[in-house]
Design a protein around this nucleic acid. Structure first.
Lengths: 337, 337
DNA sequence: GCACACTCTGCAATCGCTTGCAGCGCAACG
DNA sequence: CGTTGCGCTGCAAGCGATTGCAGAGTGTGC
């Protein structure tokens, strides 16, 4: 039933080699032979068997993406960009979801390693040694994480946090809280350190670190009461989901955003514009991150000898919406000052 | 660098055949030989080359999923379920995003067909003939769509719409609008027909069809003014995203949900619980849909002769949140009745 | 007219694995 | 002790493509 190069060869009256060449190196074959072969191939609906091809060439024409959670809009957007770019390069895309389990990462990578030309590993949670090990299994690009000289794509977390804090300060906030993400998260470490370093440059502003929370809505709801108790008038969340959780938790306690509390998220996932109030957030070019990762990977595959690329600190841009407002001068339980 | 069966054979002092058998049919090999081979294989970090294996067995160990939009939380959840189930069966997962372009569907399927044992095609928009054609390319399972005797997984749209409308009627609403999805959408056709048929059973309730809209938030915002003009006191949206758009559009016009208008979505995507007010929605078991699709596909692959499976009308359950309320007896601009 | 160069095509080896078949050794049986 | 049967292993033939090499055919230059 499936049509092979032999069939095309027979019908076109040439050898299999010629069929192969007509498809892969058209210039090596006489024009009229080429068109005849290609016509027959098209007519028969011939598609080369990728397994056979990959067996001999060593290349698969596939690349893969490993993320912690496909349902998380942050990774969903990256995945979208990844697939679109992969397709434009002619690559098919494998996907894997580690379910936030660091132990699953190396297993997924190993399973995929042999059938891809390279992998993108997104926000891996595992230790450095493990990541270095995976990089040995197959060409690897890290997103939101660095590890030795493994290729990377990262966003400018520091500048993002800076933009958010400068903006909150401009609104008059002088006590700003940070609701962190997972303790083991590389992004969280970066954001937290940016939070501290920006704060250190503004002695008139007090910082409050609320702690480490799950990177989901539940993390934010858990942090909400701590935020209220902290006395801060504004908060920066590890990401938008945590910010949503804060929003929800605050609402339950009757704390009105942005009147009583300003809230800033990070990532600007698509739903952030839909919430009410709209969430002010540090806009990350999510789809571009996916694209950039593919570009980096393709560059590696095409020239394996080149030094690892590092597309570091992709620019971010604060998107101001309804969750931030000037600090109220009167206490929260009174009317507007 | 990569270790092949030959390497394992040499080290273990056996032939390649024995290595192969030790891995694929352990019972055919003497216990001590088997353990020796397996130990050596593990020690060398041997993993069989999937291309070589697939070349001869005809099976790839991969399955694929084609969706219209990975960023849409609806499909993201299905994708998550798909991947989890695939992995539990030992399959690796290809993913493809048609970007809502019906013409892309057959192309993506064709590109993937040779390297998967089967594909799941989610909410395809293309015409029947094209879908039937794809089903010829490789084992296919349709989600949210039927086509001849191609295997399918569908949810009980009719009952979902019925639950929503019965609930709205119980709240006193007697003029109910439907903001439809894309004209070519099979799901929309089903939901619309359910809307009509349920309405027909309740002569005291007037139905208003607002028209066809894009299945995104933008579709809902576009429909909002039509909804206001319709005189309806409650609306059912094609899906949650459209409902969000309605919510936003109504808010802009000062129409308060649920006080002035009750809103019900369909799908109950994860973010629906986070919105404010929380969106009442027909809960679809999204992750289960992904799982069910994989189960169906695996059954097909294991027994290609069996008749196509149809997991039709997976049960749905209305989830009531804050976007629905009893109909106000006084006009909207007055205080509560 | 001959040699040489060049273009195009086919032969055959090869990628790494699976699998039918044959062969070997051993135990049981007659 | 010879035969049979069985359990285990190796041989070798593929799977469907790619590709180095050789050879056929044509054209060019001398």
């Amino acid at each position: 039933m499936p049509v092979s190069a032999r069939d095309v060869a027979r019908v076109a009256g040439v050898s299999v080699s010629t069929v192969s060449r007509a498809l892969t190196r058209p210039d090596d074959v006489a024009p009229e032979t080429r068109t005849r072969v290609l016509d027959v191939a098209r007519g028969l609906g011939y598609l080369p068997n990728p397994a056979a091809r990959s067996l001999i060439t060593g290349r698969t024409g596939n690349i893969g993406l490993v993320v912690p959670d496909l349902e998380n809009p942050f990774f969903a957007s990256i995945t979208k960009g990844f697939h679109a770019r992969a397709r434009s390069f002619g690559y098919a895309a494998f996907i894997a979801d580690s379910d936030e389990d660091p132990a699953a990462e190396p297993e997924l990578v190993r399973n995929l390693a042999k059938q891809v030309d390279g992998l993108v590993l997104c926000s891996p949670r595992g230790p450095e040694e493990v990541i270095a090990g995976m990089a040995r299994d197959c060409p690897l690009v890290l997103v939101n994480r660095t590890c030795g000289d493994v290729a990377t794509v990262t966003v400018d977390d520091h500048d993002g946090v800076r933009q958010a804090m400068v903006y909150l300060q401009a609104l008059g906030h002088r006590r700003i809280a940070f609701a962190g993400g997972p303790r083991a998260s590389w992004s969280n470490a970066r954001r937290l350190s940016a939070f501290r370093s920006v704060g250190a440059q503004h002695p008139d502003t007090e910082l409050v670190e609320l702690g480490f929370f799950s990177p989901h809505v539940s993390g934010g709801t858990a942090a909400a009461d701590l935020l209220i108790a902290s006395g801060a008038t504004a908060a920066l969340a590890y990401n938008d989901l945590v910010a949503f959780g804060l929003l929800e938790g605050l609402r339950r306690r009757g704390v009105v955003v942005p009147r009583d509390m300003s809230l800033v998220g990070i990532d600007d996932i698509p739903m952030s514009g839909l919430a009410h109030p709209g969430l002010t957030s540090v806009g990350t070019p999510l789809v571009n991150v996916g694209r950039a990762a593919v570009d980096t990977l393709v560059a590696m595959v095409r020239d394996p000898t080149a030094p690892a690329l590092h597309q570091d600190d992709l620019p971010v841009q604060l998107v101001v919406r309804g969750s931030t407002a000037p600090r109220r001068t009167a206490p929260a339980h009174a009317g507007p000052g």
